[in-house]
């Protein structure tokens, strides 16, 4: 087991943690399940890129992208809050677009390019959005946070691409980065701790730096 001592919070430990890499372990148990059901193959080989690294996995067809990341690749930064596409904690970027990783099967992403929170930045080298969340205290318990951050990064790209939202008044004008637009577009990411006011400030700051 991982040493509990590794969780001491200090600048040193953050650097140590950031240096740790994810072990790619595939699906160690699949062979076992197949011996139990020789008549039905429930697994498929799939390959995709995660945070720039090309991976090949043999996965149960029922395995969601979320569980592939968390249980097979140990990329546990992507959170399981509801497993029903209702909370947004599992938001990742697939080919640059944000999706709920719990609502899509891993085997559907052959050849895809997936970016998780771990791929955006690391302690000691945070992505500007991650840093802005720290700066504005845009989280409390931290469980929705990776999803909020992935979602907000993609959301700003959607505004840049002039994709309208429910609150966009003028479809003929370029989409604007306003608090109302941010709130509307981020509403698929629930934060029960209620950090919304701070999250909007964090995103606004990053958006302002971009434009």
């Amino acid at each position: 087991m991982q040493s509990p001592g590794a969780l001491e919070i200090s600048r040193r430990d953050l650097l140590v943690a950031s240096a740790a890499t994810v072990t790619v372990a595939g699906a160690p148990s699949l062979a076992h399940s197949q011996t139990n059901t020789p008549e039905a193959s429930t697994g498929t080989n799939v390959s995709f890129t995660v945070n720039g690294e090309r991976l090949e996995l043999e996965l149960d067809n029922r395995t969601t992208l979320l569980d592939a990341l968390r249980e097979h690749l140990y990329l546990t930064g992507t959170k399981k809050g509801c497993d029903h596409g209702q909370c947004g904690a599992c938001t990742v970027l697939v080919d640059g677009r944000r999706i709920n990783a719990c609502l899509t099967l891993a085997v559907m992403h052959e050849g895809g390019s997936i970016t998780t929170i771990e791929g955006l930045g690391q302690p000691g080298n945070l992505h500007p959005m991650q840093a802005a969340f720290v700066e504005h205290d845009g989280f409390q318990c931290g469980y929705c946070t990776p999803g909020q951050i992935c979602s907000s990064v993609a959301m700003l790209e959607e505004i840049s691409a002039n994709i309208p939202s429910h609150v966009t008044d003028d479809l003929m004008a370029p989409a604007e980065i306003t608090a109302a637009e941010i709130r509307e577009r981020m509403s698929g990411n629930i934060c029960r701790c209620g950090a919304y006011s701070n999250i909007v400030e964090a995103i606004t700051e990053v958006a302002g730096r971009k434009t």
Partner: peptide
Amino acid sequence: HRIDGPLKTAGK
């Protein structure tokens, strides 16, 4: 700022 902030925002 929260000393656990970098860990939480980085999914660590």
